[in-house]
Amino acid sequence: MLADCLAARLSATPVTPKLVFSSNGQGVALAGTDLFFAKAMEQADWIHADGMSIVLASKRATTSLPERVATTDFFHDAAEVAVANGLSFYMLGGTEQQNRKACEAIAQLYPQLKLVGRRNGYFKPEEEEMVCADITNARPDVLWVAMGKPAQELWCVRNRDRLGGVAWIKTCGGLYAFLAGDAVRAPEWMQRWGLEWLHRALQEPGRLLWRYLVTNPNAIYRLIRYTR
Protein backbone atom coordinates (compact mmCIF):
# COMPACT_ATOMS: atom_id res chain seq x y z
CA MET A 1 0.00 0.00 0.00
CA LEU A 2 2.63 2.52 1.03
CA ALA A 3 4.75 2.12 -2.11
CA ASP A 4 1.73 2.56 -4.37
CA CYS A 5 0.51 5.62 -2.46
CA LEU A 6 3.90 7.32 -2.56
CA ALA A 7 4.31 6.53 -6.26
CA ALA A 8 0.88 8.02 -6.98
CA ARG A 9 1.83 11.20 -5.14
CA LEU A 10 5.04 11.56 -7.15
CA SER A 11 3.37 10.90 -10.50
CA ALA A 12 3.24 13.87 -12.88
CA THR A 13 -0.23 12.76 -14.04
CA PRO A 14 -3.08 11.23 -12.04
CA VAL A 15 -2.55 7.48 -11.74
CA THR A 16 -5.21 4.88 -12.37
CA PRO A 17 -6.14 3.44 -8.96
CA LYS A 18 -5.18 -0.11 -8.11
CA LEU A 19 -8.15 -2.29 -7.18
CA VAL A 20 -7.68 -4.34 -4.02
CA PHE A 21 -10.40 -6.92 -3.46
CA SER A 22 -10.83 -9.80 -1.04
CA SER A 23 -12.02 -13.36 -1.54
CA ASN A 24 -14.00 -15.62 0.78
CA GLY A 25 -16.56 -18.38 0.50
CA GLN A 26 -19.31 -15.99 -0.54
CA GLY A 27 -17.08 -14.52 -3.23
CA VAL A 28 -16.15 -17.95 -4.60
CA ALA A 29 -19.82 -18.93 -4.79
CA LEU A 30 -20.77 -15.64 -6.44
CA ALA A 31 -18.01 -15.93 -9.02
CA GLY A 32 -19.47 -19.28 -10.07
CA THR A 33 -22.98 -17.94 -10.59
CA ASP A 34 -22.53 -14.26 -11.50
CA LEU A 35 -20.49 -13.65 -14.67
CA PHE A 36 -20.32 -9.90 -14.11
CA PHE A 37 -18.91 -10.38 -10.63
CA ALA A 38 -16.37 -12.94 -11.89
CA LYS A 39 -15.20 -10.50 -14.57
CA ALA A 40 -14.99 -7.70 -12.00
CA MET A 41 -12.75 -9.86 -9.80
CA GLU A 42 -10.48 -10.45 -12.79
CA GLN A 43 -9.87 -6.68 -12.95
CA ALA A 44 -8.34 -6.59 -9.46
CA ASP A 45 -4.66 -5.82 -9.03
CA TRP A 46 -4.61 -7.59 -5.67
CA ILE A 47 -6.91 -10.20 -4.15
CA HIS A 48 -6.30 -11.35 -0.59
CA ALA A 49 -7.84 -14.27 1.26
CA ASP A 50 -10.46 -12.93 3.65
CA GLY A 51 -11.76 -16.40 4.47
CA MET A 52 -10.12 -19.49 5.92
CA SER A 53 -11.72 -21.61 3.19
CA ILE A 54 -9.47 -19.88 0.66
CA VAL A 55 -6.37 -20.49 2.76
CA LEU A 56 -7.24 -24.17 3.27
CA ALA A 57 -7.95 -24.69 -0.42
CA SER A 58 -4.62 -23.12 -1.31
CA LYS A 59 -2.87 -26.02 0.45
CA ARG A 60 -3.76 -28.08 -2.64
CA ALA A 61 -2.11 -25.56 -4.95
CA THR A 62 1.54 -25.31 -5.96
CA THR A 63 2.01 -22.27 -3.74
CA SER A 64 -0.13 -22.12 -0.61
CA LEU A 65 -1.21 -19.03 1.27
CA PRO A 66 0.48 -18.62 4.67
CA GLU A 67 -2.51 -17.08 6.46
CA ARG A 68 -5.83 -15.35 6.23
CA VAL A 69 -5.81 -11.58 5.84
CA ALA A 70 -9.14 -10.38 7.22
CA THR A 71 -10.10 -6.92 6.00
CA THR A 72 -11.23 -6.05 9.53
CA ASP A 73 -7.68 -6.69 10.77
CA PHE A 74 -5.95 -5.25 7.72
CA PHE A 75 -7.68 -1.90 8.17
CA HIS A 76 -5.88 -1.32 11.48
CA ASP A 77 -2.51 -2.24 9.97
CA ALA A 78 -3.23 0.15 7.09
CA ALA A 79 -4.28 2.91 9.49
CA GLU A 80 -1.02 2.62 11.43
CA VAL A 81 0.97 2.86 8.19
CA ALA A 82 -1.15 5.83 7.11
CA VAL A 83 -0.51 7.69 10.37
CA ALA A 84 3.22 7.02 10.20
CA ASN A 85 3.47 8.25 6.62
CA GLY A 86 0.81 10.94 6.38
CA LEU A 87 -1.51 9.00 4.09
CA SER A 88 -5.19 9.88 3.83
CA PHE A 89 -8.40 7.83 3.70
CA TYR A 90 -11.88 8.40 2.28
CA MET A 91 -14.65 6.18 3.66
CA LEU A 92 -17.47 5.35 1.23
CA GLY A 93 -20.45 3.09 1.83
CA GLY A 94 -22.76 1.81 4.52
CA THR A 95 -25.74 3.66 5.88
CA GLU A 96 -25.35 7.27 6.91
CA GLN A 97 -25.49 6.38 10.59
CA GLN A 98 -23.06 3.49 10.33
CA ASN A 99 -20.63 5.44 8.15
CA ARG A 100 -20.65 8.36 10.57
CA LYS A 101 -20.19 6.11 13.63
CA ALA A 102 -17.36 4.23 11.92
CA CYS A 103 -15.55 7.47 11.10
CA GLU A 104 -16.02 8.71 14.66
CA ALA A 105 -14.49 5.46 15.93
CA ILE A 106 -11.56 5.81 13.51
CA ALA A 107 -10.96 9.35 14.73
CA GLN A 108 -10.84 8.11 18.32
CA LEU A 109 -8.57 5.15 17.56
CA TYR A 110 -6.25 7.09 15.23
CA PRO A 111 -6.56 10.81 15.98
CA GLN A 112 -3.66 11.64 13.66
CA LEU A 113 -5.11 9.76 10.70
CA LYS A 114 -6.19 12.01 7.83
CA LEU A 115 -9.82 11.28 7.04
CA VAL A 116 -10.42 13.59 4.10
CA GLY A 117 -14.00 12.61 3.39
CA ARG A 118 -16.85 10.20 3.88
CA ARG A 119 -20.17 9.37 2.25
CA ASN A 120 -22.85 6.73 2.72
CA GLY A 121 -23.39 4.16 0.00
CA TYR A 122 -26.97 5.10 -0.82
CA PHE A 123 -27.05 7.13 -4.01
CA LYS A 124 -28.57 6.77 -7.46
CA PRO A 125 -26.57 5.54 -10.48
CA GLU A 126 -26.83 8.97 -12.06
CA GLU A 127 -25.11 10.43 -8.98
CA GLU A 128 -21.99 8.28 -9.33
CA GLU A 129 -20.09 10.87 -11.34
CA MET A 130 -20.77 13.51 -8.70
CA VAL A 131 -19.71 11.14 -5.91
CA CYS A 132 -16.47 10.33 -7.73
CA ALA A 133 -15.80 14.03 -8.26
CA ASP A 134 -16.18 14.63 -4.53
CA ILE A 135 -13.72 11.83 -3.83
CA THR A 136 -11.09 13.03 -6.30
CA ASN A 137 -11.43 16.60 -5.00
CA ALA A 138 -10.69 15.30 -1.50
CA ARG A 139 -7.52 13.62 -2.89
CA PRO A 140 -7.38 10.54 -0.66
CA ASP A 141 -4.55 8.07 -0.99
CA VAL A 142 -6.87 5.15 -0.20
CA LEU A 143 -10.60 4.91 -0.89
CA TRP A 144 -12.43 2.33 1.24
CA VAL A 145 -15.65 1.03 -0.34
CA ALA A 146 -18.22 -0.84 1.78
CA MET A 147 -21.24 -1.80 -0.30
CA GLY A 148 -21.25 -5.59 0.08
CA LYS A 149 -20.54 -8.18 -2.59
CA PRO A 150 -21.06 -7.96 -5.53
CA ALA A 151 -22.11 -4.30 -5.56
CA GLN A 152 -18.81 -2.93 -4.24
CA GLU A 153 -16.62 -4.76 -6.75
CA LEU A 154 -18.87 -3.78 -9.66
CA TRP A 155 -18.87 -0.16 -8.47
CA CYS A 156 -15.08 -0.07 -8.21
CA VAL A 157 -14.55 -1.44 -11.70
CA ARG A 158 -17.22 0.81 -13.19
CA ASN A 159 -15.80 3.99 -11.65
CA ARG A 160 -12.07 3.25 -11.64
CA ASP A 161 -11.31 5.66 -14.48
CA ARG A 162 -13.23 8.46 -12.76
CA LEU A 163 -10.98 8.25 -9.69
CA GLY A 164 -7.62 9.16 -11.14
CA GLY A 165 -5.10 10.13 -8.47
CA VAL A 166 -6.39 7.71 -5.84
CA ALA A 167 -3.68 5.12 -5.27
CA TRP A 168 -5.79 2.28 -3.87
CA ILE A 169 -9.48 1.43 -3.98
CA LYS A 170 -10.03 -1.16 -1.25
CA THR A 171 -13.30 -3.02 -0.82
CA CYS A 172 -14.18 -3.60 2.81
CA GLY A 173 -17.64 -5.23 3.07
CA GLY A 174 -18.75 -5.25 6.69
CA LEU A 175 -15.81 -3.26 8.09
CA TYR A 176 -17.92 -0.28 9.11
CA ALA A 177 -20.24 -2.48 11.17
CA PHE A 178 -17.29 -3.64 13.27
CA LEU A 179 -15.82 -0.15 13.59
CA ALA A 180 -19.20 1.30 14.54
CA GLY A 181 -19.74 -1.39 17.17
CA ASP A 182 -22.78 -2.85 15.39
CA ALA A 183 -21.01 -6.22 15.00
CA VAL A 184 -18.56 -8.09 17.23
CA ARG A 185 -15.64 -10.20 16.04
CA ALA A 186 -15.71 -13.93 16.67
CA PRO A 187 -13.47 -15.41 19.39
CA GLU A 188 -9.91 -16.15 18.31
CA TRP A 189 -10.50 -19.90 18.25
CA MET A 190 -13.43 -19.51 15.86
CA GLN A 191 -11.34 -17.31 13.58
CA ARG A 192 -8.50 -19.86 13.58
CA TRP A 193 -10.86 -22.71 12.67
CA GLY A 194 -12.61 -20.77 9.93
CA LEU A 195 -15.87 -20.42 11.86
CA GLU A 196 -16.23 -16.66 11.92
CA TRP A 197 -19.05 -17.01 9.39
CA LEU A 198 -20.99 -19.06 11.95
CA HIS A 199 -20.46 -16.43 14.63
CA ARG A 200 -21.75 -13.71 12.31
CA ALA A 201 -24.70 -15.84 11.23
CA LEU A 202 -25.71 -16.35 14.87
CA GLN A 203 -25.45 -12.60 15.45
CA GLU A 204 -27.62 -11.74 12.43
CA PRO A 205 -29.57 -14.90 11.53
CA GLY A 206 -32.26 -13.06 9.61
CA ARG A 207 -29.75 -11.52 7.22
CA LEU A 208 -26.83 -13.94 7.13
CA LEU A 209 -27.89 -17.48 8.07
CA TRP A 210 -29.67 -18.28 4.82
CA ARG A 211 -26.88 -16.66 2.79
CA TYR A 212 -24.23 -18.86 4.37
CA LEU A 213 -26.36 -22.00 4.11
CA VAL A 214 -26.66 -21.38 0.37
CA THR A 215 -23.16 -20.11 -0.44
CA ASN A 216 -21.01 -22.35 1.77
CA PRO A 217 -21.80 -25.68 0.02
CA ASN A 218 -21.38 -23.99 -3.37
CA ALA A 219 -18.04 -22.51 -2.33
CA ILE A 220 -16.76 -25.80 -0.89
CA TYR A 221 -17.64 -27.62 -4.12
CA ARG A 222 -15.94 -25.02 -6.28
CA LEU A 223 -12.82 -24.88 -4.12
CA ILE A 224 -12.44 -28.66 -4.26
CA ARG A 225 -13.34 -28.94 -7.93
CA TYR A 226 -11.29 -26.08 -9.34
CA THR A 227 -8.28 -25.59 -7.06
CA ARG A 228 -5.13 -26.75 -8.83
Rank of each mutant, 00 (worst) to 15 (best):
Y176A: 07
L115V: 13
T71S: 08
N85W: 12
N159M: 00
A61M: 00
R211G: 01
A183H: 04
T136P: 01
P125A: 13
Y90I: 02
K101Y: 02
A219N: 07
E126K: 12
A201E: 10
A133H: 01
F21K: 06
A12G: 14
N85L: 09
A105R: 09
G93E: 08
A133P: 01
V145W: 05
E188Y: 06
V55C: 07
T13E: 14
N137Q: 13
A61L: 00
L35M: 09
D4H: 06
L175D: 05
T171S: 11
R158D: 07
E204R: 04
V81W: 11
S53C: 08
R100P: 00
V116S: 08
V166M: 06
L35W: 05
I54L: 00
V83G: 02
Y221Q: 07
L163F: 09
G148Y: 05
H199N: 11
N216S: 04
D50T: 01
Q97Y: 06
G173I: 04
N216H: 04
W46Y: 15
R162I: 04
V166S: 02
L19Y: 15
P111R: 06
C172M: 09
R192G: 11
W197T: 02
M41K: 15
A8T: 11
A79C: 11
L87C: 05
W155K: 12
G148V: 04
A107H: 01
R119A: 05
F178K: 05
V184C: 07
S88F: 12
G181T: 05
Q112N: 10
M1G: 13
T227Q: 00
V184Y: 06
E128F: 01
C172S: 11
K170P: 05
Q191H: 14
L198A: 15
G206W: 07
A105V: 02
V28M: 00
G25C: 05
V116I: 08
M91P: 08
F36D: 14
P187Y: 09
T16P: 10
D4Q: 07
V145F: 04
R158F: 02
D161Y: 11
R60P: 02
L198P: 03
W210S: 11
A138G: 12
V28H: 00
K149Y: 05
D50C: 02
L92T: 06
G121C: 12
A177I: 00
A49F: 00
G165P: 12
N85K: 09
R222C: 06
K101L: 09
